[in-house]
Nucleic acid binder design. Structure first.
Lengths: 281, 281
DNA sequence: GTCAATATGAAATAATAATTCCAATCTATA
DNA sequence: TATAGATTGGAATTATTATTTCATATTGAC
């Protein structure tokens, strides 16, 4: 038998799930109960847990031993540690992640760094988002005939998700891609009754800037997502959002931009539904 | 004296702070310790807590009685209850936001919901990521000649970001896009010396499944990012990651997948740099 | 400074909980 | 279906932990 003792909850969980089907009936019964009610394991006594799970206390100990612990008590530690960690405040956990990532403890640190960067970006934007601008942008996009989505390079993933979501919501949209170099022609169809979501971060992709200028000159209203008031996008936009993404290892997070983009998209969908209902009534 | 027993942590906290200055020295010492280290009170034994706080166990019991409890055990219940509640608060918050958004509580609720969904996903994956699998995936991808990136629809934004990042890191890669319907031909070039990152979530895009199968049959090793062990991708993959993304308003967050994807990419870049250095030395 | 009231320390005791052990019961295999 | 091996139930045992007790120290009022 594998003698390594799962020290943390997730490892234990994985191990349990792996062996799930080869466990004796009562042991499996406890395994299921433990994963369903981890809090009870953390706080209960062997007797009380055994009763809740419908087994004998001795079986509970056998369960612990089955997974390499020397008794119920040390198994319980894992469930308690989990609660402690979970409970430690968000910021504390972030700080810990960041510290670990910085001292460069292997590849796991890279992962932790990206998680930390994403979390930071999210809490930043959550504080910074201007409700008025947000409502303006939604109003503007909701009345557009077609929504053009414009972004290259690093911002392109966001644009493609917006396009996907708009499609799902049955909102006419056009992702301005550069595959065949026909962007200028595509843009030429846009009218002031349409609208644009443009996304670009420093260093601003020249193509995005040019196309945004072009489309702005045709009188199409623009909602921009960018990273500072000096951004060339800001001057063309009716409404613009400043999103500060934390970076790690040279790559910036996209999580805040994604959250904002999704919120915009879904809110536009809702606003349209409401408007449609009202017209009918 | 007030004989009502504080049943919840906040009441207890307030009561302690009120009486702080009229407490005997050692009792006050415990009071301070308890408010500073609530987790220790929740999980420790009377003896261990007393030792940490620098008092006798009996004093700890007197402290409990001072505040109307009949002993240490019932005092401890309050600290345990607090952990239980705190622990569930994240999911509850998300549920509350969902409800609020549904009853039409403005667009800000939608935004908050997406931020919460992203945060939840991040903290989930941060806990769940298996270090061993992560290292295996990096090793596998680092030695590939070309990395093929395969994802459609909802997962496509992640794929495009991976491709962008790989390009920046000067790692040869091929995003399998469906623009001209030449995917099969593109895949045919892949050899066992290459590797694949495939991403798909339920409902799995049939094209992704088919292409993954095809490329797996050619002996190309596959790293999959998907959402459960039942995923059809899992069976083709050498290594696979389970990523549970929270959803909001029908759209799932991508933040956890993004963080994982970025971490993989950058880690592969680092591993290659290290390998290159070693060869030269 | 003395005395009573209060607070504290340390060990003894009581209570509770974990673990072990053994008999009984299943399960798979020949 | 007989039998070895694994699994389970339940009581006995052991360990741990909370609580009580009592001697000692400290504090504050007179």
């Amino acid at each position: 038998m594998d003698e390594r003792v799962p020290r943390d909850f997730e490892t234990l969980r994985t191990t349990i799930l792996e062996r799930r089907h080869s466990l004796p009936k009562r042991i499996a019964q406890i395994a299921a109960y433990a994963l369903d009610n981890p809090d009870d394991i953390a706080f209960g006594t062997a007797a009380s847990i055994a009763a809740s799970a419908g087994v004998q206390p001795s079986t509970l100990i056998r369960f612990a031993q089955q997974f390499g612990f020397d008794g119920f008590t040390s198994l319980q530690q894992v469930f308690r540690e989990r609660l402690r960690e979970r409970n430690s405040s968000y910021d504390e956990r972030l700080a810990a992640l960041r510290a670990k990532a910085e001292e460069g403890a292997g590849h796991r640190a890279i992962f932790d760094g990206f998680v930390a960067a994403a979390s930071t970006s999210l809490s930043d934007i959550s504080r910074a988002l201007n409700d008025t601008h947000f409502e303006e942008a939604i109003a503007l996009l909701a009345k557009a005939e077609t929504i053009y989505v414009l972004a290259k390079r690093r911002s392109y993933p966001v644009a493609s998700y917006i396009a996907y979501a708009l499609g799902k919501l049955k909102i006419r949209n056009q992702l301005v891609e550069s595959a065949a170099g026909l962007n200028a022609e595509m843009i030429a169809f846009a009218t002031p009754r349409d609208a644009v979501i443009a996304i670009s971060f420093s260093p601003y992709a020249p193509a995005t800037i040019d196309e945004t200028r072009l489309i702005a000159e045709q009188g199409v209203p623009i909602v921009a997502i960018t990273d500072s008031s000096f951004s060339p996008l800001a001057q063309f936009a009716k409404v613009w959002f400043e999103v500060a993404e934390a970076d790690f290892g040279g790559f910036r997070s996209l999580s805040a931009t994604m959250a904002l983009a999704m919120a915009l998209t879904v809110a536009v969908g809702e606003k349209r539904r409401d408007a449609g209902r009202k017209r009918k009534a």
